[in-house]
Design a protein around this nucleic acid. Structure first.
Lengths: 126, 126
DNA sequence: GCTTGAGCTGGAGTGCACTCCAGCCCGTAA
DNA sequence: TTACGGGCTGGAGTGCACTCCAGCTCAAGC
């Protein structure tokens, strides 16, 4: 798969794909005769996973560390598991935070509706 | 309340408090005779609310817009409510995303545990 | 065989949200 | 009365995560 196709299918820009390779998030893919990157299909799954870690707040440095451990093979299973467990904890914390704020938004919206009704009434009375 | 006390009680650094004032997130507080900021108690509640918007992913520009609307009074109730409703939708989206990834973390952790057991067995067999 | 377009590299630039700094003033304690 | 700590301002600097650019090569189509 050429870089332009991977870009379309992954949703990452071409520049970001090369950037991710440079910082070690994506393994350098094989090149064709002209020196152009030729990605394996499997990279798509990995990118989707990276996206999920990213979207749920894992820091770049940690994603890079995970990628490096992954490249080192079975010897790093325990360490990778520990990282995901840590991230799981962080996600749970953020879930609670979001739920709390969701409830707050609902209360505030209801409050504003009430205030708008008040304002409406006053306006009507004039 | 002096800025150092507000810093301690709000968890924001003194620099951040002044920065927030500069960009319009916090109203300029009255000054004492020496020209030093003297914050009202009420600012703490506002900062906590800002924190919550921040922690749940609202952009600086939007928080500033909300702060400006708030300063304009009752005429902006509807607009403020619309902003919070939009943010509520965004929070709900992120909740779903986090839940999905939480489940993924659990699956992956279980997977790694299984792999570690395998590795353990092999090592034992040698 | 020349134009076009995709891809390449190294490095500079961007936007966000702070964070730090120099050099100043002022009020209180020794 | 002077030393100190806290506060002030405007502006420069930081870290993160990209994003853009100049100037190059190469392959394929007309």
């Amino acid at each position: 798969m050429k870089i332009s196709e991977l870009s379309k299918r992954s949703g990452l820009s071409i520049d970001t794909l090369r950037f991710y390779e440079k910082i070690g998030l994506i393994e350098p893919p094989p090149r064709d005769d002209a020196g152009r990157r030729d990605y394996p299909e499997a990279v798509l799954g990995w990118i989707r996973f990276l996206d999920q870690l990213n979207a749920t707040g894992m820091k770049q440095a940690d994603r890079i560390r995970y990628a490096r451990l992954r490249a080192e093979g079975p010897a790093t299973y325990a360490e990778r598991r520990a990282m995901l467990e840590t991230h799981r904890t962080e996600i749970a914390r953020r879930l609670a935070e979001l739920e709390e704020t969701l409830a707050l938004m609902d209360r505030k919206v209801a409050h504003y509706r009430a205030l708008e009704d008040e304002t409406q009434k006053e306006t009507t009375n004039v």
